[in-house]
Design a binder for these strands. Structure first.
Length: 775
DNA sequence: GAGTTTGAAACT
DNA sequence: CAGTTTCAAACTC
């Protein structure tokens, strides 16, 4: 077992190597951005990675101290053996420990890498255990690492989940971890320093090495907290192998672990955890700090790791917002996490009751993409994707490319974060009062929300959120449903469709979309989802969102499916809000069955758009003003795609552009894979951006977006633009969901090599969205 | 604010 | 899958 192998990558025989995830990572390794992505995605299930997160939670810590956990951690070599044996037995704590250790190992200088993963497995021959463990870890993960919630989860869940370990690396890691833990139990000695560690190291090394660059600790705080925990643990000082010792001083090291957490959040059945959490601590339901990326980079503050962790964890809580789904719990599997996330907003205040509305989070998801998030719907897969994007984007530190990839993958997950942010900001009375944001329609809202989340995550800067909220809130945010017969339990209800509970502002009658009727809501949601998995997915996918979707690959992902839907306008000529496309501020795509489409944002037929563009172009340039101008700009942008393409280089990535881009992206998002208009416009993303950029300024904002859009689009688009412009991001974007949505046909035209690469990444990441695929 | 229009959602 | 009904938002007055 201990036969150390010097290769970081791990011995060929090692499980890690074998694991698809590992391979994937290794392949990606060359590309940093990709790495991050890989990690997150692949590890989605691997919560173990982020020990810090786990430790961070006070609960966990407390539990650790008392529990055998610490003991085990002491790491007597012998303990290892025992640990392995016990590993399966001791549910939560042990596993937990294992997870913690892993990171440590990774961090540890000792980190020899050499220890082949295989060794661990073989020695113990407990591979079977791994799967079991995995589930637990996953659960943990769900609970935000930092979050207190975790602790409850741990305790409760561990045993519960037998979990079928996914083939993911995480499983490996966990498995290794557990084994080590188990061994420790069985064996008297110390498990800490010995092979067990090594094993962990190996895993981590492999993972870390590849992903290290990309990995981020969710928050510095977490890392700090984690370390503190370690320090606190008696073992630390005494046992070199103690967690504390293992715990890397450098945040960077920590990052490895955390990224995983994030991943886990995303991929894993958040809903499950959420549900569990709900009972105990609904608050913490929030996803793990999706925020992390931002935090990590920014967060250096560590002040009170615990406290802050808590804050960070809050994010997770928000994410949990999925409560919607969580309540359903069911969703984990079927429904895409993304969808849920958006849907289930946590309501900090009311917890159970308000959750939905608070859920605005869904918006966050979209918001990321568009403005950061647009719609609560966004939470849906699309939203997730967007959210990912946002987060990814948000993280300024990361190279565009890297982040992008990550974001894309994470996006889905992050949605939750987005939610959180909203919550945080929103939770404050303002948001709530305003009422839940609606995903699609309330793009602005979403955006605001989304933005807020990101900010929160990053620095918790309320500014974006607020402002956006203000925008969105003013009009749309305040909007509420007015359902009379549907009980707000059908998609007719915007609130319900957005995955949020109806709030005060709503004028609905006999409303059942309230926390009180959570069960009913969940059941209804399930039913609807059963019929149409994409029902709660964002209708319109933003460019950013689209990118993530790409991973899904066209039709497979819910997002794409959503987009698939097009409007069916017959009389409105797609010039009124009756038209979803128009309402969303996106052009009609091939998917649309509209008649006499006049959508200013883009017509089904590229030709039409072009015509308009041409006309407008003549007019617009002189007229820089307002919506009309904007609209024109949009059209023009589309029309001028070609021109713009040329311009691209010259054009700065102005917000307007971004917005524009977003619009274009949206097109694809709509679903239609590649619309003529799209194609014409977006035939080349870069060009599109450019074109949009030019016109964006003039481009009319979508009705919903109008208020918020400017900011939102700009935000969302910014990254996109960057990506397009050739920055790593550009590549990523290209690869991102958009491509998928765009549909194969378009892909041909668009996909630059870079994009393709990104797509690949995404695709791999896709697995993270089990639900979607299932669908 | 009431009534009409519209198109999505839901139903058959 | 298509047609019809229901529904609520968007729109008009």
């Amino acid at each position: 077992m201990d036969t150390p192998q010097k290769n970081r990558t791990g011995t060929p025989g090692s499980k890690i190597e074998e694991s698809p995830v590992f391979n994937y990572l290794s392949n990606l390794s060359p590309i940093k951005p990709v790495k991050s992505i890989h990690i997150s995605q692949s590890f989605t299930s691997l919560n173990l990675t982020s020990p810090s997160s786990v430790f961070t939670s006070p609960h966990i810590i407390s539990s650790f101290k008392d529990s055998a956990f610490l003991k085990r951690h002491r790491f007597s070599d012998q303990s290892r053996a025992s640990d392995f044996d016990e590993g399966t037995k001791d549910s939560s704590k042990e596993e937990f420990v294992g997870s913690c250790q892993l990171p440590d190992n990774a961090v540890n200088k000792d980190f020899d890498l050499e220890h082949p993963v295989t060794e661990v497995d073989t020695n113990h021959g407990q591979q079977s255990e791994v799967p079991k463990v995995l589930p637990r870890t996953l659960e943990y993960d769900y609970g935000t690492p930092a979050c207190e919630t975790k602790s409850p989860l741990f305790t409760d869940q561990r045993d519960e989940d037998s979990a079928e370990a996914s083939g993911s690396i995480a499983s490996f890691a966990q498995g290794t971890v557990r084994e080590s833990s188990d061994k420790s139990d069985g064996v008297p000695g110390t498990f800490q320093n010995t092979p067990h560690r090594e094993r962990l190291r190996l895993h981590w090394d492999n993972l870390a090495t590849d992903a290290a660059d990309s990995l981020f600790i969710n928050s510095p705080n977490e890392a700090m907290a984690f370390r503190r925990l370690l320090d606190k643990s008696p073992d630390n000082e005494e046992n070199p192998g103690s967690l504390a010792s293992l715990f890397p001083d450098n945040i960077n090291e920590l990052r490895l672990a955390q990224p995983v957490d994030q991943v886990d959040f995303v991929g894993v059945g958040m809903a499950q955890q959420v549900n569990r959490v709900k009972d105990s601590q609904p608050q913490y339901l929030d996803w793990p700090p999706e925020i992390t990326p931002c935090h990590v980079e920014k967060g250096t503050d560590n002040n009170s790791s615990d406290d802050q962790l808590g804050s960070n964890s809050h994010q997770g809580v928000r994410r949990r917002c999925l409560t919607f789904e969580t309540a359903g719990g069911h969703r984990k599997s079927s429904t895409s996490v993304a969808n849920r996330l958006p849907d289930v907003p946590l309501q900090p205040e009311e917890k159970g009751t308000s959750r939905f509305k608070q859920s605005i989070p869904s918006k966050p998801v979209s918001a990321y993409s568009s403005q950061l998030v647009k719609s609560g719907i966004g939470l849906h897969l699309n939203a997730l994707a967007t959210a990912k994007d946002k987060q990814i984007l948000l993280p300024e530190h990361h190279p565009a490319g890297v982040e992008i990839g990550v974001s894309s993958s994470k996006t889905s997950f992050y949605p939750a974060t987005s939610q959180e942010s909203p919550r945080v900001a929103l939770d404050t009375g303002s948001y709530v009062s305003s009422g839940p944001l609606r995903t699609d329609t309330q793009v602005s809202e979403d955006d605001s929300i989304a933005v807020a989340p990101s900010e929160e995550l990053n620095s918790a800067s309320p500014r974006k959120k607020r402002p956006k909220l203000a925008h969105a809130g003013d009009d749309e945010s305040c909007k509420r449903c007015n359902c009379k017969k549907s009980k707000c339990l059908k998609l007719y209800c915007e609130c319900f469709a957005a995955g949020v509970y109806c709030i005060e502002p709503c004028a609905c009658q006999d409303c059942h979309n309230k926390p009180i009727h959570e069960d009913t809501v969940l059941a209804t949601r399930k039913q609807i989802e059963s019929r149409n998995p994409l029902a709660f997915a964002p209708r319109v996918i933003r460019a950013s969102q689209a990118l993530p979707d790409v991973g899904d690959e066209t039709a497979n992902t819910p997002a794409s499916a959503r987009h698939k839907r097009g409007c069916n306008c017959k009389k409105s000529s797609c010039l009124k809000k009756y038209c979803e496309c128009y309402q969303s501020g996106v052009g009609c795509s091939l998917n649309c069955r509209c008649e006499s489409c006049q959508n200013t944002y883009g017509r089904k037929d590229g030709s039409e758009v072009d015509l308009e563009v041409e006309v407008e172009a003549a007019e617009e340039e002189p007229q820089p003003t307002e919506k009309s101008v904007v609209d024109r700009g949009l059209e023009k942008a589309a029309l001028h795609k070609h021109e713009e393409r040329n311009l691209d280089p010259s054009f700065p990535a102005t917000p307007s552009r971004l917005s524009r881009l977003a619009v274009k992206l949206q097109f694809p998002s709509k679903g239609k894979p590649m619309r003529s208009s799209f194609l014409s416009i977006g035939s080349s993303f870069g060009s599109q951006n450019d074109t949009r950029g030019v016109k964006l300024s003039s481009i009319p904002l979508p009705p919903k977006f109008e208020k918020s859009l400017p900011t939102t689009h700009a935000e969302e688009e910014m990254p996109e633009l960057l990506q397009k412009q050739g920055s790593p991001r550009n590549i990523i974007k290209s690869g991102s969901p958009n491509g998928k949505r765009v549909s194969p046909p378009q892909c041909k035209s668009r996909p630059s090599p870079s994009r393709r690469s990104t797509r690949r990444l995404i695709l791999q990441a896709i697995p993270s969205f089990p639900s979607i695929n299932q669908q």
